[in-house]
Amino acid sequence: MRDLFRGKLVRLTFEEPEARAKAEVRWQRDTEFHRLADSDPAQMVSEKKLKEWFEKQSEIGFKPERYPFSVRTLADDRHIAFFALWLDLIHSEAWVGIGIGEREFWGKGYGTDMMKLGLQYAFTELNVQRVSLGLHEYNPRALRSYEKAGFRMEGRTRQDLMREGKHYDSLWMGILREEWIQMQGGDLNE
C-alpha cells in the first residue's frame, strides 16, 4: 500500500486551529504570497478571527465536501504550507487549493511534492474522476509545478483579474483519472 501522507520532501498533516492561525498571521503579511494564491484583495485578519475560522473548519473538517491539510517538511518538520481539496461528489471531481506561506521553500520542488501527494489522495482515497485547479497567468512558477505533477491546460478566461491597474488571465487546468494512472505506470497495485 502507498503512504498517502508522506512524499519525498513533505508530509500532509492536520494542525490545530491555533497553529494554523499563527502561521496565517505570518503568511498574510506577504502580499506577494497572497496575490499569487488568491484573486481577492489582500487584507489583514486577526489571529482571533482566523482561529475561529479554522475551528469552524475543523468541526466540519471530516464532512465529505472539504479536505483541508497542513504541510510539514520531512527534513526539519516545519509547517510551511496549506493544501486543501474541495470534493464535488455528484460529478466526482476535486478542486485543489495550495499555498506555500514560507517563501524560502518556493521554487524548490516542495509544491510539486505536495501536489503529487494531493493527487494520489484524490484519485486513490476520494476516488474522483478528475482533479481541477485555477491559477493566475502571472504565476509561471506554479504553472511549471502543476505541469510536472501532470495537470493539462484546459483554457484561459481572458482578463478576469486586475492587479496594479492591469488585466491578467486566469488559467484553468485539469487531470483525468486515466491520465494520472498512466503516469503511475498504468497500474495502481505496483
Binding site: E154, G155, T157, W172, G174, L176
Partner: peptide, 19 residues
Amino acid sequence: EVRRRQALDRDGRRWDLIV
C-alpha cells in the same frame, strides 16, 4: 475560453463543461 474535460457525470457518461 475553457473546456473542462469530462467534468460532469450525467446519464452514465462524462461530459465537458465549457466556460
